[in-house]
């Protein structure tokens, strides 16, 4: 689903390696966590506290907090505005993310 990611002439664009729920993924550098997941067909990474419903991104620009995810052990990180970095351990989040 990548959109013309490597337009730049010839040069190999740098990539980022991370894991999501234990599975390794590789994406071009500079993507947000949400974009990195969506480019691999993952559209949901959280279940809500009350109804346990799946959620992905809504506003996509850091306002609505619907896309919260657990990043390197820290819950409630906005996937839509946080850039993915090499070595990131990304985990889907249940409820408020503190395992209650």
């Amino acid at each position: 689903m990548s959109a013309d990611a490597s337009k730049s002439s010839g040069s190999v664009s740098p990539t980022v390696d991370f894991t999501f729920d234990g599975t390794p993924y590789r994406v071009p550098e500079g993507q947000t966590v949400a974009a990195a997941l969506i480019s691999h067909g993952v559209v949901s990474w959280r279940h809500t506290r009350v109804g346990e419903q799946p959620r992905g991104i809504l506003c996509g620009i850091g306002v609505c907090f619907d896309c919260l995810i657990t990043l390197n052990g820290q819950p409630n990180v906005r996937a839509c505005v946080t850039r993915i970095e090499t070595g990131d351990v990304v985990c889907s989040q249940e409820g408020c993310g503190f395992g209650d």
């Binding site: 990548s2 959109a3 990611a5 993507q31 947000t32 974009a35 990195a36 480019s39 991104i57 620009i61």
Partner: peptide, 8 residues
């Protein structure tokens, strides 16, 4: 933002 910011 997905397409312009991340190319996805």
């Amino acid at each position: 933002a997905l397409v312009k910011g991340s190319g996805v």
